[in-house]
Simulated scan of single mutants.
Amino acid sequence: MSTDIPPLTGELLGLDLINTRARSGTDSIDRLSTPDGLRMWVALQGERLKEFGGDVLATVSQADLAAIRSVRECASQLVDHVRHGRAPSDANLRELNRTLSAAPVHLELRWVGSSMAAEARRTGSVIADLAAHLAEAVALVLTDPGVSTIRKCEAEDCTMLFLPASSRRRWCAAARCGNRMRVARYYQRHKDS
């Protein structure tokens, strides 16, 4: 399992979560295999998960990590079904809905300078809040009208998913798989000559 490969970030948060476990080339990647891996991935998400940064996840246990990985597994299976127009399993839907309901949301009002702001707050343990936040991100992916355009990287040895901004995008990242596949095609053309 390699951690030398930089994670693919910048997709919808639900897809970034799924892409924390993938295969790229000969490397297997699991960004959520350790509590440190979870903390690093959360930090890489920046503003999207800022409330879980710093020391908030300092005491993540293996059981906590299993809860987040469970959301990822459900997300992976649900997105795979829905992007192909297939009905998802009831078990996966129940699991994701259970995660969403484990950390209820309420609005919290605060005064910001010269006006009021309402911000959604979750009430649960830090891990239940993070799992629910990620489950919500997955729900947004699943209900997005573009869910059927989510693609798997065309590199035959890569499993990363992405939502293409252009119909011409073929790889999870040009610098990762795009270059590798172009070099392989070039090598193949010149080997056969």
Score class of each variant (00 low, 15 high):
Ala117Phe: 02
Met160Pro: 02
Ala131Gln: 11
Ala139Val: 07
Ser125Gln: 09
Glu156Gln: 11
Ala102Asp: 13
His106Gln: 14
Ser166Cys: 00
Arg176Phe: 09
Val183Trp: 01
Val138Tyr: 01
Lys152Ile: 13
Arg180Gly: 01
Ala103Pro: 04
Glu136Tyr: 03
Ala91Asn: 11
Ala165Pro: 05
Arg170Tyr: 07
Thr149Asn: 06
Ile150Met: 01
Pro164Glu: 10
Cys158Gln: 03
Ala174Leu: 08
Thr123Gln: 12
Ala87Arg: 15
Gly146Leu: 07
Asp129Glu: 15
Ser167Lys: 15
Ala120Phe: 10
Pro145Asp: 11
Leu107Gln: 14
Asn92Ser: 12
Pro104His: 02
Ser89Gly: 09
Met116Phe: 15
Ala173Glu: 13
Val141Asn: 09
Leu93Glu: 09
Ala137Pro: 06
Ser148Cys: 06
Ala184Phe: 05
Ala91Val: 14
Glu119Cys: 01
Arg176Ala: 15
Ala102Tyr: 05
Ala155Trp: 03
Ala175Glu: 13
Ile150Trp: 09
Tyr186Gln: 10
Gly124Tyr: 00
Ala91Phe: 08
Asn92Arg: 01
Ala155Cys: 01
Pro164Lys: 05
Glu108Met: 04
Met116Ser: 14
Cys158Lys: 07
Val105Pro: 00
Met160Ala: 09
Thr143Tyr: 03
Leu107Phe: 14
Ala103Asp: 06
Ala175Val: 10
Ala103Thr: 10
Tyr186Met: 09
Glu108Ala: 09
Phe162Lys: 04
Thr159Asn: 11
Arg98His: 12
Trp171Met: 08
Arg94His: 15
Ser114Thr: 15
Trp111Arg: 08
Leu130Tyr: 10
Arg121Trp: 08
Ala174Phe: 05
His106Leu: 10
Leu142Ser: 00
Arg185Gly: 02
Ala128His: 03
Arg94Asp: 15
Met116Tyr: 15
Thr143Asn: 09
Leu140Tyr: 04
Ala117Gly: 09
Phe162Tyr: 13
Phe162Cys: 05
Arg110Lys: 14
Ala131Ile: 02
Arg182Leu: 07
Gly113Thr: 07
His133Lys: 10
Trp111Ala: 04
Pro88Asn: 09
Ala132Pro: 02
Glu136Asp: 14
Arg94Ile: 10
Val126Tyr: 04
Arg110Cys: 10
Leu93Phe: 06
Ala131Glu: 06
Leu109Ser: 14
Leu142Phe: 03
Trp111Gly: 00
Pro88Ile: 11
Ala102Lys: 03
Gly124Asn: 04
Leu107Ser: 12
Gly178Val: 01
Val183Arg: 07
Ala137Tyr: 05
Phe162Gly: 06
Met181Asn: 05
Glu119Met: 03
Val126Lys: 01
Thr99Pro: 00
Pro164Asp: 10
Ser89Pro: 00
Asp144Glu: 04
Ala91Glu: 15
Leu96Ser: 00
Arg170Asn: 06
Asp144Asn: 13
Thr159Asp: 12
Asn179Glu: 13
Leu140Gln: 13
Arg170Gly: 03
Leu130Thr: 10
Ala155Lys: 00
Trp171Leu: 00
Ala139Tyr: 07
Ala155Ile: 02
Arg151Gly: 01
Thr149Val: 08
Ala128Val: 00
Ser115Gln: 15
Trp111His: 12
Ala87Phe: 08
Ala135Asn: 05
Tyr186Thr: 07
Thr149Phe: 04
Ala137Ser: 12
Ala135Glu: 05
Ser114Leu: 13
Trp171Ala: 05
Ala118Thr: 12
Glu119Ile: 15
Ala132Met: 03
Arg168Met: 06
